[in-house]
Design a protein around this nucleic acid. Structure first.
Lengths: 138, 138
DNA sequence: AAAAATCATGCACAGGAATTGCATTTATCA
DNA sequence: TGATAAATGCAATTCCTGTGCATGATTTTT
């Protein structure tokens, strides 16, 4: 259980400290993307900055990707198998629910290619659809 | 000149005060979207909060739309003729240059329709492409 | 196994930005 | 003109990212 998470970290070249295992475990149990503040509530005992740096480390090593859903605070979600979130073509769509304020990854929905005018050289893209999710519209 | 701006405000149901005329004039002369801080530099004498509320008023009355380009601060741009930025179908793409940090509206480029799973009810969408603009790549 | 070096963590604090409350001024309307 | 409503400016709050530095833990080297 914990062992699996430890392996996951090592595979990405991240030293498996207690803190990191806990954060990874918390992220694994989440369906929606979480913000730093969300995490802070889960780990009341820990320092905000440590969580901040933990997420940063995860991100730099391709374990999570961050989503800017327009709420002001970036959110983080575990990368799935084959989530090449650094490569332009593989960026997926995110959905932000205005009711529960949660943000979901839709890894199966890729951002369509936009054929921009020549003077614009694209490198990455971010598409957030906002609306109401299934739980909130029921 | 100023008269035109005044009419524009009145058409949208916004009382044409001096401040608002100045802000509208400043926005009209901009090719790229501007942030609150950008505006603040132009109007050094004025208060940040007033500018903030002016933009908010403009936005509520459909005179400008805001873009979240991921820089942390929302940017604002004048709506063009027929810019139905409240209506899902008409949302256009924005381009953010990582060199000059400017954000451009691409009104001719609409966000493609994403056929989401049924449980997600879309209401709006935001697509920001990041890269390098023509001026910076030359 | 001990010393040295590197890395992780926690605390304090700086800085930027959105946002609100309230008092004052300005404009509208009866 | 007097009453009412709206706009503005100032002060202050809150929230968040990010940095500096000291301490503790872990890895590496000798």
């Amino acid at each position: 259980m914990i062992k699996e998470l430890e392996i996951k970290l090592k595979q990405k070249g991240i030293r498996p400290t207690a803190m990191r295992l806990l954060v990874l475990e918390a992220l694994s149990g989440q369906e929606a993307a979480v913000s730093l503040s969300d995490l802070e509530e889960v780990f009341e005992k820990s320092d905000r900055v440590t969580l901040y740096r933990t997420l940063k480390t995860f991100q730099e090593n391709g374990l999570v990707h961050s989503i800017d859903d327009g709420t002001g605070a970036p959110k983080y979600a575990l990368c799935e198998e084959g989530c090449e979130c650094n490569i332009e073509q593989d960026l997926h769509v995110h959905f932000h629910c205005r009711m529960c304020r949660e943000t979901f990854c839709l890894p199966k929905y890729k951002i369509p290619d936009i054929d921009l005018p020549g003077e614009f050289i694209p490198e990455e893209a971010n598409l957030v659809v906002k609306g109401v999710c299934g739980k909130c519209s029921a």
